[in-house]
């Protein structure tokens, strides 16, 4: 998921050597356990702060990088209605990134530091955005599946323990539902169209289904930080729980428009009241985390290019503002 820790190393390195007052830690843990909100100026353990900065900035990066696969189709949207919708959606994703950067900054890490961590490869973003958008149907599949999976993860985070993060999630969740519905609508229309259009929709589902399931992160038994994150209320459901929920909700949506989920093992389990489904290719997942996704290089090149080409604008605006402020001061 956007928020599943993909960083791999230096988990608790930050805490080593820092002796924190056990009474403060106990009081903090008790507040969090009582579902109280932690605010920026409240005392918090260093490990909580670090984990949150990592999680929130990774989430923000995912929103920003997530604009690239969809941005790829803005100029080629099939009609004006679709184009206006896609533009609005991509603009929302920029907004989501900014809400989250702004919330993460309250923890004492600057926006530029986070951007640098992304560009240097130190910070991660969701693996899903390292897959290419080959046809227009991919825009439908992304809205339906990728935003759908994001909603599943984000809704419980509206009650996450860190106040600014929870409030950012409330704002984001309000906007996500349109993203998913416009995607499903695209799929619906294609699936009801010509044979070629239907094939295109099915092909997009075939390619996006498994990467979407990977968005929830590794299986619970391979996700060592889940327990601490759940205790800290910065994760509210396990990866496998959310994945199951996603499958159960999405399969009937596919069936309703005559598309087939590409999983031979998929079968309704009467006893569990849930779908059994096949094993995700975790080798592929870990390879993409490591940066071997089909278009991982292009994504970072695009971000780097935007950053570099914006440098003179940032500089000019800053110097201009400083000059005007100085002139105003002199005139007073």
């Amino acid at each position: 998921m956007y928020t599943t820790d993909l960083s791999g190393k230096d988990k608790n390195a930050a805490v080593a050597g820092v002796a924190e007052d056990p009474a403060l830690i106990a009081a903090f843990e008790a507040r969090v356990a009582a579902d109280e909100f932690i605010e920026p100026k409240d005392w918090m353990p260093e490990a909580y702060r670090k984990t949150l900065v990592r999680q929130m900035s990774q989430h923000a990066h995912s929103e920003i990088v997530g604009m690239l696969p969809e941005g790829n189709w803005i100029t080629r949207a099939p009609n004006l209605r679709r184009k206006a919708i896609l533009l609005a959606k991509v603009q929302d994703e920029a907004g989501h990134g900014l809400y989250l950067y702004s919330a993460a900054e309250t923890l004492g890490t600057s926006r530029d530091e986070m951007t640098e961590a992304l560009l240097s490869g130190k910070a991660k973003y969701s693996t899903i955005f390292n897959y290419p958008t080959l046809t227009w149907a991919d825009i439908g599949a992304i809205g339906w599946l990728v935003d759908g999976a994001a909603i599943m993860n984000q809704v419980p985070l509206q009650r996450t323990s860190y106040g600014p993060y929870a409030r950012a999630m409330v704002r984001i969740c309000k906007e996500e539902s349109f993203h998913q519905r416009q995607g499903y609508e695209i799929m619906m229309h294609l699936a009801a169209g010509t044979d070629a259009q239907k094939r295109m929709a099915q092909d997009a589902l075939n390619r996006w289904w498994w990467p979407s399931l990977m968005m929830f992160g590794p299986p619970d038994d391979k996700s060592p930080n889940t327990e601490q994150s759940m205790r800290w209320r910065i994760k509210r459901d396990t990866n496998d729980e959310l994945r199951q929920k996603f499958v159960d909700i999405t399969v009937p949506q596919a069936e309703a428009i005559g598309l087939t989920v590409p999983d031979a093992a998929l079968k309704w389990n009467e006893e569990r009241g849930a779908y059994d489904f096949g094993e995700v290719d975790w080798e592929e997942f870990y390879a993409v985390v490591k940066g071997e996704g089909p278009v991982a290089k292009e994504r970072m090149q695009a971000r780097q290019k935007a950053w570099d080409e914006g440098a003179w604008v940032r500089e000019a605006a800053r110097v201009h503002a400083e000059k005007r402020a100085a002139a105003k001061l002199a005139a007073e």
């Binding site: 809400y99 702004s102 605006a317 201009h320 503002a321 005007r324």
Partner: peptide
């Protein structure tokens, strides 16, 4: 609501 970065008040 949150915060933004900007060079001056208008921006």
């Amino acid at each position: 609501a949150g915060s933004v970065h900007a060079a001056d008040a208008k921006m």
